[in-house]
Deep mutational scan, measured.
Amino acid sequence: EKTLKIVADSEEEAEALAKELAEKYNLEVTIERNPEEEGKYVITIKIKP
């Protein structure tokens, strides 16, 4: 299993990107607040072998 993390500037941007990735590529995608940067969100994508 591989994990890729993407940082987005807004929750709306994160949700839109996560939804597109999940639907288009059938990936497991989660969104959470970035504890290191206020106002940023981390999109985590898990790629199963």
Score class of each variant (00 low, 15 high):
Asn34Thr: 07
Glu15Phe: 13
Glu12Phe: 07
Ile45Gln: 01
Glu12Cys: 06
Tyr25Thr: 06
Ile43Asp: 00
Lys48Asp: 12
Asn34Val: 08
Gly39Gln: 05
Ile47Trp: 06
Leu17His: 01
Ile31Phe: 04
Lys24Glu: 07
Thr30Val: 05
Glu23Asp: 07
Tyr41Gly: 00
Gly39Ala: 03
Glu11Ala: 13
Thr30Asn: 05
Glu36Trp: 05
Ala8Pro: 00
Val7Arg: 08
Lys24Thr: 11
Ile45Arg: 00
Leu4Ile: 15
Tyr41Thr: 02
Glu37Pro: 07
Val29Ala: 06
Ala22Asp: 02
Val7Pro: 14
Tyr41Met: 03
Pro49Ile: 11
Leu21Gln: 01
Ala22His: 13
Val29His: 02
Glu15Arg: 11
Ala8Tyr: 02
Glu15Thr: 10
Lys48Ala: 12
Glu37Cys: 13
Tyr41Ile: 03
Leu17Cys: 10
Arg33Gly: 05
Lys40Ile: 05
Glu11Ile: 11
Arg33Gln: 11
Glu1Asn: 06
Pro35Asn: 07
Glu12Lys: 08
Pro35Asp: 08
Lys5His: 15
Asn26Met: 07
Glu15Trp: 09
Asn26Gly: 13
Glu12Leu: 06
Lys19Gly: 04
Leu17Tyr: 03
Ile45Phe: 04
Lys46Gly: 04
Ala14Trp: 01
Glu36Cys: 14
Glu12Ser: 09
Glu23Tyr: 11
Gly39Lys: 03
Leu27Met: 11
Ile43Val: 14
Ala16His: 07
Ala22Cys: 11
Asn26Pro: 03
Lys40Asn: 03
Glu37Trp: 12
Glu36Phe: 09
Glu13Arg: 06
Ile6Trp: 13
Ile31Leu: 03
Leu17Lys: 05
Lys46Pro: 12
Tyr41Ala: 01
Leu17Ser: 01
Ile6Thr: 02
Ile45Lys: 00
Lys5Tyr: 15
Leu4Thr: 09
Asp9Trp: 04
Pro49Asn: 12
Ser10Asn: 07
Glu37Lys: 10
Glu13Tyr: 09
Ile47Glu: 04
Lys48Leu: 13
Ala18Cys: 10
Ala14Val: 02
Thr44Arg: 02
Leu21Thr: 02
Tyr41Leu: 03
Lys40Pro: 03
Ala8Phe: 04
Thr44Leu: 10
Lys46Cys: 03
Leu4Phe: 15
Glu13Lys: 07
Val29Glu: 00
Val29Pro: 11
Lys48Cys: 10
Arg33Leu: 11
Tyr41Val: 04
Lys5Trp: 15
Glu11Val: 08
Tyr41Cys: 03
Ile43Gln: 00
Lys24Asp: 12
Ala22Phe: 13
Leu27Cys: 14
Pro35Ala: 09
Lys19Asp: 03
Ile31Pro: 00
Glu23Gly: 08
Lys2Thr: 15
Ile47His: 04
Glu28Thr: 13
Ile31Gln: 01
Thr3Ile: 13
Gly39Trp: 07
Thr44Val: 09
Glu36Ser: 11
Val7Thr: 10
Ile45Leu: 06
Glu23Lys: 12
Leu21Gly: 00
Glu38Thr: 09
Glu38Pro: 10
Ile6Lys: 02
Glu12Tyr: 10
Pro49Ser: 12
Lys46Ile: 14
Glu1Gln: 03
Glu13Met: 10
Leu27Asn: 10
Ala16Gly: 07
Glu37Ile: 14
Lys24Pro: 01
Lys48Ser: 11
Glu28Gly: 04
Thr44Tyr: 13
Thr3Val: 14
Thr30Gly: 02
Ala18Ile: 13
Lys24Leu: 14
Leu21Asn: 00
Ala8Cys: 13
Val42Trp: 06
Val42Thr: 07
Lys19Gln: 10
Ala22Arg: 14
Ser10Ile: 01
Gly39Arg: 04
Leu17Met: 11
Ala14Thr: 01
Ser10Thr: 11
Ala18Phe: 10
Lys19Met: 06
Glu15Asn: 13
Lys48Met: 09
Glu15Gly: 06
Ala22Gln: 14
Pro49Gln: 11
Glu28Asn: 10
Ile6Met: 07
Leu4Met: 12
Ala22Gly: 11
Ala14Lys: 01
Glu13Asp: 05
Ala8Trp: 02
Asn34Ala: 10
Glu20Cys: 15
Glu15Lys: 10
Glu11Cys: 07
Ile43Tyr: 01
Lys5Leu: 14
Val29Lys: 00
Glu15Asp: 07
Thr30Phe: 08
Glu12Val: 07
Glu36Pro: 08
Ala18Asp: 00
Ala8Asn: 01
Glu20Ser: 13
Tyr25Ser: 05
Gly39Ile: 03
Glu11Asp: 03
Lys2Ala: 15
Thr30Asp: 06
Glu1Cys: 12
Glu1Gly: 06
Ile31Asn: 00
Tyr25Lys: 02
Tyr25Met: 04
Lys2Pro: 14
Ile45Asp: 00
Leu17Ala: 02
Arg33His: 07
Glu37Asp: 08
Ala8Asp: 00
Leu21Asp: 00
Asn26Lys: 10
Glu20Met: 14
Glu38Ser: 10
Glu23Ala: 10
Lys5Ile: 15
Lys48Arg: 11
Glu23Asn: 11
Val7Gln: 12
Ile43Phe: 02
Glu32Pro: 00
Thr3Cys: 15
Glu12Pro: 05
Gly39Leu: 03
Leu21Cys: 03
Val42Asp: 05
Lys5Met: 15
Lys5Ala: 13
Glu1Pro: 04
Arg33Asn: 06
Val29Cys: 04
Val29Asp: 00
Ile47Gln: 04
Val42Gly: 01
Leu4Ala: 06
Glu1Tyr: 05
Glu11Phe: 10
Ile31His: 01
Ile43Ala: 01
Val42Gln: 02
Glu36Arg: 08
Val29Gly: 02
Ala18Arg: 07
Lys40Gln: 10
Ala22Lys: 14
Arg33Tyr: 06
Lys40Tyr: 03
Glu36Met: 11
Glu32Phe: 04
Asn34His: 15
Ile6Ala: 02
Glu20Ile: 14
Pro49Phe: 12
Glu20Ala: 12
Lys24Arg: 10
Val42Pro: 00
Tyr25His: 08
Ile31Gly: 00
Ile6Glu: 02
Glu32Gly: 04
Ile47Ser: 02
Pro49Cys: 15
Arg33Phe: 11
Tyr41Asp: 00
Asn34Pro: 10
Glu12His: 08
Lys19Glu: 03
Gly39Thr: 08
Arg33Cys: 05
Lys2Val: 15
Arg33Ala: 11
Ala18Gly: 06
Lys46Asp: 07
Ala14His: 00
Ile47Leu: 13
Arg33Pro: 13
Val29Asn: 00
Glu13Cys: 14
Thr44Met: 06
Glu23Ile: 09
Leu4Ser: 05
Ile43Asn: 00
Leu21Pro: 00
Glu37Val: 11
Glu36Gln: 08
Ile6Asp: 00
Glu20His: 14
Val42Glu: 03
Asp9Val: 05
Glu15Cys: 11
Asn34Tyr: 13
Glu32His: 03
Pro35His: 09
Glu13Leu: 10
Ala22Glu: 10
Ile6Arg: 02
Lys40Glu: 04
Ile45Val: 12
Glu38Asn: 11
Ile47Lys: 04
Lys19Tyr: 08
Thr3Phe: 15
Leu17Gln: 03
Ile47Gly: 04
Ala22Val: 15
Leu27Gln: 14
Ala18Trp: 06
Pro35Lys: 10
Glu23Thr: 11
Tyr25Arg: 02
Thr44Lys: 03
Tyr25Pro: 05
Val42Cys: 05
Leu4Cys: 15
Lys2Cys: 15
